[in-house]
Design a protein around this nucleic acid. Sequence first.
DNA 1: TTTGCACGTAAAGATCCTGTAACCAAGACA
DNA 2: TGTCTTGGTTACAGGATCTTTACGTGCAAA
Lengths: 240, 240
Amino acid sequence: MQVLSKRLDALGCEYRPLAAPMGPEGLVAMRLNALVVDLAILGPNGWGYLEQVCSRLPGLAVIVCTGPSSVAQRVRGLRLGADAWITKPCHAEELICVIEAAVRRHRRTEMPALEASTSFGEITVRPDLYQGYVNDVSLELTAREFEILHLLTGSDRVLRREEIYERVWGYAMAHGDRSVDVFVRKLRQKLRNGSPAWSYIHTHFGVGYRFAPEREGSGGADLELVEDSPIDVLDPALTG
Amino acid sequence: MQVLSKRLDALGCEYRPLAAPMGPEGLVAMRLNALVVDLAILGPNGWGYLEQVCSRLPGLAVIVCTGPSSVAQRVRGLRLGADAWITKPCHAEELICVIEAAVRRHRRTEMPALEASTSFGEITVRPDLYQGYVNDVSLELTAREFEILHLLTGSDRVLRREEIYERVWGYAMAHGDRSVDVFVRKLRQKLRNGSPAWSYIHTHFGVGYRFAPEREGSGGADLELVEDSPIDVLDPALTG
DNA sequence: TTTGCACGTAAAGATCCTGTAACCAAGACA
DNA sequence: TGTCTTGGTTACAGGATCTTTACGTGCAAA
């Protein structure tokens, strides 16, 4: 621990030694990139703890660093969701490399920022500015609202709430959590403000939400036929 | 290699043993999820090869599986971009778990592979939209109805009620529960609405249900089951 | 043909899901 | 430190969906 701490300090890494195992909720609050656990110290509950943490925080890199073990034990740990298993005693440098490898793979797919802006109906999503626009007017989306919009616009299929939560929040959704619903509501409100004639986020009852820009006859009395109004609002010169 | 091949076959994994190191371009063409290399076999050029592959294919999981090594070597390998380092001799099972752990983390941020939509008779099942269609017209299936339809269309054999219940509801069916029957009825009704000339879900008395699109012609409705006869899908003049 | 089940059908009640709004906590900022 | 913004929770109402129940019909064996 002393050697490891010294090396981590030298690398400028933030870390926190935990004397007792911390529950998933506490780990979520710490916003960790990686967690190193010693199953031997955790005792017989270690397996359950490992499983709990891995399932609850799928985005967290979990490295098991413990004493001599059998193949079956290592297999079990990795199957439960651990990213790596390293046997004590080990060099701090090697452990750090293993942690980095796990975190690196985790971060890799987060990095691709600066995506091209794309338009859907009247709105334009700009990942580079973390904001959505209607005719160059900002929708005033908050960070989380934008992330959800960005995720939804990224695929045509129906996204289940659990998927949305996991990809935006970074960990598994608790049963009964309504956060996704609330944010979708806020999103819809802002989208409606900026683009009243369109509907974008569609509810699939019992499943989740799907993004698809569609005209809505909200303005006119026409129920279906919208042929009289020759309005060209498609593709403003934003997309550059 | 023999043991590993056998285990991979049992798991249904696709793999390809390479006698000689393959360049990054060749690897790209293979669309691999993971690559296992033995640095000892690669010889002195191994480090360069590892670096080249890891930098050219950042999305590829690279596992080094080689003989006894020093800490410095393992650190070097991981720093160059390897995702894991496992020492020979090792159990095939453990190696597979390490590969799975690396691939799992890689896959996490990807969109779940959207299953292809499949057609049966006149209907089309779209898993990405959780919905069934007849000529692009929605059947208005509820979430549970779709799940049952999706399950039934997934296999040709007769599915017992208990199987259906367990796979859709997620837990064992209580004795005397008629839910499956009720949902099959609703399904049949909606299928009949959208595609009156066909029958899709067939009852096997005392067993369960089986999905098989069959014409219900006014002319030649066979009483016996026609299991092996291929079904010609053609466009009858009936549809609109 | 009779008889005992299994299945099809329909409707009503219970349950679950979702939109909505109000509320509280945590962080940003002056 | 106080205020404002943002994130997240909870409660409630209305509606959609699911489950249960009941009864009629059809199948298969005796």
